[in-house]
Simulated assay, not measured.
Amino acid sequence: MLRLLLLIVLLAASSSASAIVIRDDVDDSRYRIPESDFPALVDMLGEGHGVLIAPQWVITAAHVLPQHAETWQVVIDGTPRNVERVVVHPGYKTMPRELIDQAMASGEAMLVAVFLASTDDIALVKLAQSVTDVAPFAIYKDNDEPSQIVKIVGKGATGTGAIGHDPRGPNRTELRRAFNKITSAYDRWFCYVFDEPPSALPLEGILGNGDSGGPVLIQIEDQWLLAGLASWKVVQGHVMTARPGRYGQITCNVRLSHYVKWIESVISGQPQAGANNSFKPNPLRGSA
């Protein structure tokens, strides 16, 4: 997909989407973490992330899924894992090409914003075999996300809030984590703003291109719980010239507390009313 006036859909595989964009007055080394700090982070095919939430299940943003690949894997803790089945939320809708063309022609993308806010950008990936060497993340089920401090994790493109990041990538780099404060939550989404220093958190950051489906975490006592998945962001400026990752931009994330019943029904094998969009990609040969 293409960069849009108000919104950049944080795509994987089909476009660039950004890793952690950081404060311009804090050294990048303070944001970097070893991959061993987050083994449950899932690398999707091409770009984008997911999170292991059960021994045989990965959760991700629906738009991250490969559109044309019939054979694919995911990588968890450095090991390729075969995919048995994918279940897309029945409320997920792919963006019409007409909307993209209108935004490109006019430089304005308000209808894209309306469309994105109306879709359920969430999917579950069932692995062919259970993961026994990595602990899954539990989901945050409360609906009190506003004002919570969240941790965001990703390893796509990077930059600083002063200038943003290059929308052309690269979109896989070192693993980074940053923090932000949720400003709003409603229905499918919760959002946060990339504040400019000195009002920003000490390690404030924002997700961007290459990290769609990546985790947004809330800490309860000594445990980090999975509260959201990176999905899209608001970017001021013209469709063709807006630069993602600058101070003041807003990221909106899939709000998992809204989808708990659906997630549990799919994993338990007792789906709710309404057909799920399920398909079975063929595993790659020679995989782990």
Results as ranks from 00 to 15, higher is better:
144 D>Y: 04
110 M>E: 14
163 I>G: 01
259 Y>P: 07
132 T>P: 08
191 C>R: 06
26 V>L: 00
112 V>Y: 00
104 M>P: 04
46 G>R: 08
61 A>Q: 13
196 E>W: 07
178 A>I: 05
153 V>M: 07
197 P>S: 10
100 I>M: 13
52 L>M: 10
241 T>I: 11
84 E>V: 10
162 A>Y: 07
269 G>Y: 04
155 K>G: 14
147 S>Y: 04
100 I>T: 07
253 N>P: 01
189 W>D: 04
18 S>T: 15
238 H>W: 03
225 L>C: 00
194 F>M: 00
173 T>H: 07
209 N>G: 11
244 P>M: 07
27 D>F: 08
281 P>M: 09
8 I>N: 10
211 D>V: 06
76 I>Q: 09
272 Q>C: 05
286 G>T: 02
4 L>Y: 12
231 S>K: 10
235 V>H: 02
231 S>G: 09
264 E>S: 15
131 V>Y: 06
16 S>K: 11
233 K>Y: 04
35 E>W: 07
139 I>S: 01
190 F>M: 11
248 G>H: 05
171 N>F: 14
179 F>V: 06
245 G>E: 03
49 H>K: 02
193 V>W: 12
158 T>H: 12
61 A>F: 08
212 S>P: 02
214 G>S: 05
186 Y>N: 12
188 R>E: 01
18 S>Q: 13
47 E>H: 06
286 G>V: 06
73 Q>A: 14
35 E>A: 11
179 F>Y: 11
59 I>L: 12
223 Q>D: 14
122 I>S: 04
224 W>H: 06
162 A>L: 13
63 H>N: 09
108 E>P: 02
166 D>L: 14
161 G>F: 03
92 Y>W: 13
226 L>N: 04
245 G>K: 01
275 A>C: 01
21 V>H: 03
212 S>F: 08
157 A>K: 08
184 S>R: 14
36 S>R: 11
43 D>E: 11
42 V>Q: 07
140 Y>S: 13
28 D>Y: 07
67 Q>G: 08
220 I>C: 06
48 G>K: 13
54 A>E: 15
202 P>D: 00
239 V>Y: 14
271 P>L: 03
16 S>M: 13
37 D>H: 09
165 H>V: 11
131 V>N: 04
18 S>F: 13
3 R>D: 09
26 V>Y: 04
172 R>T: 14
275 A>N: 14
154 G>T: 04
177 R>L: 11
5 L>Q: 13
202 P>T: 00
192 Y>P: 10
75 V>N: 14
57 W>I: 05
176 R>D: 02
1 M>W: 15
16 S>R: 13
247 Y>K: 01
210 G>P: 03
264 E>Y: 06
165 H>Y: 04
177 R>D: 10
48 G>P: 14
256 L>R: 02
246 R>D: 06
62 A>M: 05
85 R>N: 07
14 S>T: 14
276 N>E: 12
25 D>M: 09
265 S>A: 11
97 R>N: 07
23 R>F: 03
132 T>R: 15
148 Q>K: 12
37 D>V: 06
186 Y>H: 15
175 L>G: 05
200 A>C: 09
155 K>A: 01
246 R>W: 10
133 D>K: 04
268 S>P: 05
167 P>H: 00
239 V>M: 08
93 K>Y: 02
281 P>V: 02
68 H>P: 08
232 W>N: 03
